[in-house]
Nucleic acid binder design. Structure first.
Length: 455
RNA sequence: GGCGAGAUAGCAAAAUGGUUAUGCAGCGGAUUGCAAAUCCGCCUAUCCCAGUUCGAUUCUGGGUCUCGCCUCCA
């Protein structure tokens, strides 16, 4: 029985889908005005893992991850670049897809873009206005009246009083309450036509939060199972989504809220505003994408994850151990035998709020068994369990030898060394091995011959 | 200031009211021409102070420290 930590209840709960055997899941994706960084990689990988586990558990899953392709930063960046909004966002959407694919992230079932759902957003805002929860202010922005929605703060555990006491909310004279947030931004003269849509409140563009409410209810229905995103979206974004969706549709919005922890650098949140981020592509220049995926999944999704080269080096070594065990596999994985003890432990771990750290520990125990008995069956099991997490999909040597440029030279050196060994010229043999080691090539002699891998 | 999360061995990271986490690193042994890989064995741990308990790293209370949200953020 799957249990999920539900932010809404602050507790692990048994997962019961609204419709038996079906799961509808929405995850907040990226705002596309720049390359994705490692924090974005974590969201994509974590919810990809959730998606895979749900499917592996025989659920029929509909997974939606949106793309925010209209917002202040996008407008600003496009203006700076002297390029159109569409050209800018398309460029970074393409880059995001490239990054995601390299990290082994499966495409969601739907990837809606905000700009394609403006009519749905306007319809929702009309609903809110009809229900007395939205108003057009003097500056012609349409705002959500936070005070009119009972239950505001139930996700983030904040009360309106607490929030007001914060005094960090900038006072906007046009809002009835400083905490009211914008649903529809009135068009400014200096903005390009590309970001202006007609509406009964005048030309304008959507606020940030409304897109997720509109797109999720359009694609998944007004009431669905799982909504996820980074922990920083809990407030205000997800809180506001709840207010909008429940305010407009008059029914429960989401049953289970999931939030993943941050990627940190030197114990600090990795973020664009702090400037301490590494883009996915920067990291992938130096590390194998599977190492990065493994690094992310080795921690529990709700825990903080410190990024450093040392930690990625460590992950690389650990993943190499798993691939080394795979060398004795006969064919490729034949599917998981769920009755096998390791698979059962794996399942228990995954069903316990997606405890991938524990599940991966089981993989290492299994690798040890494989190595002890040189069992192709268990090796196949290891590969198949890895596949459930989107790991261990490659040929063992392909992973261990990595970039195969220079293969011919390596093979030639190994042949020369074997000749020297045959002639009992160990000084020469060791010299060749040392040379290769300095080039990052480690040799492994065995009864079957000499194998090599990259250090 | 308000609200929330967390402190586990050299590093990383799970779990648990009593019994091996796991990976990397380290130490000893097997194997090897020597190595590497692998196997066997070992070493390091639960922030501090009270309380509950036969027994707490785990539960409760207090403290210290760290991180996050309260402003755009995955």
């Amino acid at each position: 029985m799957l249990k999920i930590y539900n932010t809404l209840k602050r507790d692990k709960q048994e997962f019961t889908p609204i419709v038996p055997n079906q799961v509808r899941m929405y995850v907040c994706g990226m705002t596309v005005y720049d390359y994705c960084h490692l924090g974005h990689a974590r969201v994509m990988v974590v919810f990809d893992m959730v998606y895979r586990w749900l499917k592996s558990s025989s659920y029929d899953v509909t997974y939606v991850r949106n793309i925010t392709d209209i917002d202040d930063k996008i407008i600003k960046r496009a203006a700076e670049n002297g390029e159109s909004i569409h050209s800018l966002t398309q460029r970074f959407i393409d880059a995001m897809h490239e990054d995601a694919e390299r990290l082994g992230v499966q495409p969601p079932d739907h990837e809606p873009r905000a700009t394609q759902y403006v009519p749905e957003m306007l319809a929702m805002i009309e609903n809110l206005e009809r229900n007395g929860l939205a108003y057009q202010a003097a500056d012609r922005d349409v705002n959500f009246a936070v005070r009119k929605f009972t239950g505001y703060g139930k996700l983030s555990g904040k009360s309106l009083e607490d929030l007001r006491a914060g005094e960090r909310v900038e006072v906007d004279g046009n809002k009835h309450d400083p905490l009211d947030f914008v649903l529809w931004k009135h068009a400014k003269d200096n903005e390009p036509d590309e970001v202006k849509w007609d509406s009964r409140w005048g030309k304008g563009r959507p606020g940030w939060h409304i897109e997720c409410s509109a797109m999720s209810s359009k694609l998944l229905g007004e009431h669905f199972d799982i909504h996820g995103g980074g922990a920083d979206l809990q407030f205000p974004h997800h809180e506001n989504e709840i207010a909008q969706s429940e305010g407009a549709n008059q029914c429960q919005f989401v049953n289970y809220w999931m939030h993943n922890g941050f990627v940190r650098v030197d114990n600090e949140k990795m973020s664009k505003s702090l400037g301490n981020f590494f883009t996915i592509r920067e990291v992938l220049e130096r590390y194998d994408p599977e190492v990065v995926r493994f690094f992310i999944l080795r921690a529990h999704y709700r825990s903080p994850l410190n990024y450093s080269d040392a930690h990625l080096d460590d992950a690389k070594g650990a993943l190499s151990r798993l691939y080394t065990a795979l060398k004795c596999e006969g064919g490729m994985g034949k599917g998981v035998d769920w009755n096998e003890p390791h698979a059962q432990r794996f399942k228990v771990a995954m069903d316990d709020d997606f405890n991938t750290a524990e599940a991966i520990a089981v993989l290492f125990d299994l690798a040890n068994e494989v190595n002890r008995g040189q069992s192709p069956q268990l090796a196949s099991q290891l590969r198949s369990l890895g596949a459930v997490l989107g790991l261990l999909g490659r040929d063992a040597n392909a992973f261990l030898q990595g970039d195969s440029s220079g293969d011919a030279m390596i093979v030639a050196k190994i042949l020369a060394r074997n000749e020297a060994k045959k002639a009992r010229n160990y000084a020469e043999a060791d010299l060749i091995r040392k040379e290769l080691l300095e080039a990052g090539i480690v040799l492994e002699d065995s009864a079957q011959g000499t194998n090599w891998r990259r250090a």
